[in-house]
């Protein structure tokens, strides 16, 4: 474990907590893409499937973190699609998730480390996570604005994988550890946030709200 991965995981936890709090406190999921949250839930379930297969005691924080990620993302989907369904902005959350899921699944079958079920599920999860934020960014471009708390959520969510890139550089240099698939997908994922990062740093940090040219 290194400082980059630690802060990356903390940033990821923060993102999940910020979103949950926003929906729970405001009792509304306006401005939140339900599709993105569904895709994240699928990512966690397919990536941590080992938890369900051979359930090992919660002997380390990693197992606990995996369970937190899965349960928090499923709970977030429950809030969006059931509890606060009335506030779900289905009209603007209109990116076709199939256009992300099918290519990720296809690519996972073509480019993977080993052609076996668990490894392909892990690879699918990595590819899907890289593009899972697109429906959320698409929704913001459609509505033309993002609530400040949603911007903080996106900043934390984007920073997590950006910090992982630093973690991979660190591990390459000090542990000669390379996980090419995760690195390439992580770079693509972080690049997708660049536009948002620019808006966040130039606006939200100064207390302004993000309003995209409609």
């Amino acid at each position: 474990m290194n400082i980059f991965r630690l802060f990356g995981d903390l940033s990821h936890l923060a993102a999940i907590a910020i979103l949950l709090l926003k929906i729970w406190k405001t009792r509304s999921c306006a401005g939140v893409s339900g599709k993105t949250q569904l895709l994240f839930a699928v990512c966690f379930i397919t990536r941590y499937i080992d938890l369900f297969l051979h359930f090992v005691s919660l002997y380390n924080t990693e197992k606990v973190m995996k369970l937190i990620y899965i349960s928090a993302s499923v709970f977030t989907c429950y809030l969006i699609f059931f509890k606060f369904k009335a506030t779900y902005d289905g009209n603007h959350d209109s990116m076709r998730a199939e256009f992300l899921i099918v290519p990720a699944a296809g690519l996972a079958c073509l480019i993977n480390t080993k052609f076996d079920a668990i490894e392909i599920l892990w690879t699918f999860s990595i590819y899907l996570e890289a593009v899972a934020i697109l429906p959320q960014l698409f929704l913001i471009s459609k509505t033309g604005e993002a609530e400040t708390i949603t911007s903080h959520y996106l900043f934390a969510q984007g920073s997590y994988r950006a910090l992982y890139i630093l973690n991979w550089i660190y591990r390459y240099h000090y542990e000669s550890h390379v996980d090419t698939i995760a690195i390439v997908a992580g770079v693509v994922q972080t690049i997708l946030y660049c536009d948002f990062f620019y808006l966040y740093i130039t606006k939200v940090v100064k207390g302004q709200k993000i309003v995209l040219p409609a």
């Binding site: 991965r5 995981d9 990821h12 990693e62 973190m65 995996k66 990620y69 480390t113 080993k114 490894e119 892990w122 992982y164 973690n167 000669s176 550890h177 390379v178 996980d179 090419t180 995760a182």
Partner: peptide, 10 residues
């Protein structure tokens, strides 16, 4: 690539 198959990151 170190060839290990389990992925030790979240």
């Amino acid at each position: 690539d170190n060839g290990q198959l389990y992925h030790d990151e979240l």
